[in-house]
């Protein structure tokens, strides 16, 4: 069966490309437009990997990450934070709340793909 992957980002312009790319790689792709949707999708669909944007309206990526790690059902979900917050304090926070990896925007899609493959291996 194909691996399930959730893209949670409120920027449609990045979602377009990520979704296209991940689908080409053969993953089953789900999309969430904000933090709340993302958390619901994770609980409902149990994706193996979440590409999580830190800055979303309402519930931020950090909040989602915390909630996921606190929820026994889904706490093993792999989380890759993709974010424009590039200060080292932000990276520290992302890792602190339980992200498995942290990539600062902008990034090359090749690096991203590689990371995704590693994390799902």
């Amino acid at each position: 069966m194909s691996l399930k992957l959730l893209i949670a980002d409120d920027e449609p312009n990045i979602v377009v490309s990520l979704e296209f790319m991940m689908k080409r790689e053969g993953y089953e792709v789900l999309v969430a437009r904000d933090g709340r949707q993302a958390l619901e999708a994770i609980r409902r669909e149990r994706p193996q990997l979440v590409l999580l944007d830190a800055m979303m309206p309402g519930m931020s990526g950090f909040d989602v990450c915390e909630a996921v790690r606190a929820d026994e059902q889904v706490r093993d979900t792999r989380i890759l934070m993709l974010t424009a917050k590039g200060r080292d304090t932000d990276v520290a926070r992302g890792v602190g709340v339980g992200a498995d990896a942290y990539m600062t925007k902008p990034f090359s899609t090749r690096d991203l793909m590689q990371k995704v493959r590693e994390m799902l291996a």
């Binding site: 312009n13 377009v16 490309s17 990520l18 790319m21 902008p106 990034f107 899609t109």
Partner: peptide, 8 residues
């Protein structure tokens, strides 16, 4: 990030 991804 959006532009780079789109260009990629």
């Amino acid at each position: 990030a959006s532009m780079q991804a789109a260009l990629d």
